[in-house]
């Protein structure tokens, strides 16, 4: 870890000013990702603008029926907020499926959005990695890449975005509010994270100095038909191999509205709006779900066949979609608000 100075900002404007007035500065939320990366010498900011004292921790109802999540509210407080639990149980479950109680107590909503993509090579300075060092090559294309992606990849990078929370936010069509040197703006969630393309060094579309202030949820929370299915290498405390967040509006056995997103398979939470449309107005059935799953992965590309490599995610992903849609339509499983149980029957 390199040496740096640190300021604790107490107001949003002040934070933006503090950051822009220092070269090589970064915002510090809970620090669970940034400090980790700094210890691995991957991020080497010379100044940190700590956001811990900003008044952005509230979760408040919006006049349009939606809910505003403060960027500095912790993941734990968000998951266990009564309004979130009641109206957006999908989000609550998804947050609880991520990381650990200790990390969620510190991790902020803004930080969760901005955590870096994950990949073994990115984390190891000894290896070539385009994301870390543009032009150095991508070690994951041929090497062990079990964590890496199969959708929206490019030859320059196949890393995946590790957030669970963001998968739900994608399905819920959240809006991100940011404030920067040039004032405020909003970003639709699907535009927030980006695909690697030729510039894997950038994970999202934030401009320099921009600070996430809040995440707005639209009114529809799919509280009656939702599921978050997270498949991973152990029951807890592991990143998703594949995850699926589903929110449905049902009328009897007919799907009126469908939103879903995948985690663990791409550089960003993966939404496929055409696939969502295939569900709408249709009667829920395993066949339909299989067609939808096939559509989502139609253009997927795996990078190696054995268990150290990720091609299996294509088949696993399809099956996960089918299962998640089934769970969300049937809702036969009792949802325990305190515990996310991995891949329940």
């Amino acid at each position: 870890m390199n040496s740096f100075t640190l300021t604790q900002a107490t107001a949003t404007d002040e934070a933006v000013r503090d950051l822009t007035s220092h070269d090589g500065a970064a915002y510090l939320g809970g620090g669970t990702n940034l400090v980790d990366l700094m210890k691995y010498n991957l991020e080497r900011p010379t100044h940190l603008t700590s956001l811990g004292l900003l008044p952005l921790t509230d979760i408040t109802s919006l006049p349009d029926g939606g809910l505003r999540l403060g960027a500095l509210a912790t993941n734990a407080d968000t998951a266990w907020h009564p309004e979130v639990e009641k109206r957006y149980p999908l989000l609550s479950q998804t947050i609880l499926a991520g990381a650990t109680p200790q990390l969620r107590n510190v991790a902020t909503n803004g930080g969760n959005l901005n955590q870096r993509t994950r990949c073994y090579y990115f984390y190891d300075l000894a290896t070539p990695c385009n994301k870390r060092e543009p032009g150095s090559g991508c070690s994951a294309l041929t090497g062990p890449n079990r964590v890496c992606g199969v959708l929206g990849t490019s030859e320059s990078c196949i890393a995946t975005h590790p957030s669970d929370m963001c998968v739900a936010l994608a399905a819920l069509e959240a809006v991100v509010r940011v404030q920067g040197p040039d004032g405020e703006r909003t970003i639709k969630f699907e535009d927030y994270h980006r695909l690697p393309g030729d510039h894997p060094e950038k994970d999202n579309t934030l401009k320099p100095g921009e600070l996430v202030t809040a995440i707005d949820l639209p009114e529809e929370g799919y509280a009656d038909h939702f599921t978050y299915l997270k498949l991973r290498d152990r029951s807890s405390y592991a990143f998703a191999l594949v995850s699926v967040a589903v929110g449905l509006k049902m009328n009897g056995n007919t799907i009126e509205k469908a939103r879903f997103a995948l985690g663990g398979v791409a550089h960003k939470p993966w939404r496929d709006q055409e696939a969502e449309k295939m569900l709408e107005g249709q009667t829920a059935s395993p066949d339909l779900f299989r067609q939808v799953a096939a559509k989502v992965f139609a253009e997927a590309k795996g990078y190696g066949e054995d268990s150290l490599h990720n091609s299996f995610k294509i088949e696993l992903g399809k099956r996960a979609i089918v299962r998640a849609l089934k769970q969300a339509t049937e809702m036969s499983q009792v949802v325990n608000p305190n515990v996310f149980l991995n891949s329940n029957p």
Binding site: L28, V35, K39, S50, L103
Partner: peptide, 27 residues
């Protein structure tokens, strides 16, 4: 581990459990 991956460093801050390895003492 020093990287938030094991929980051995868990302490309570205002009654809540956190990993002290990823916390900067100053804040």
């Amino acid at each position: 581990c020093d990287h938030g991956q094991c929980g051995a460093c868990t302490v309570l801050v205002d009654g809540k459990r956190i990993n002290s390895c990823l916390a900067l003492a100053t804040v």
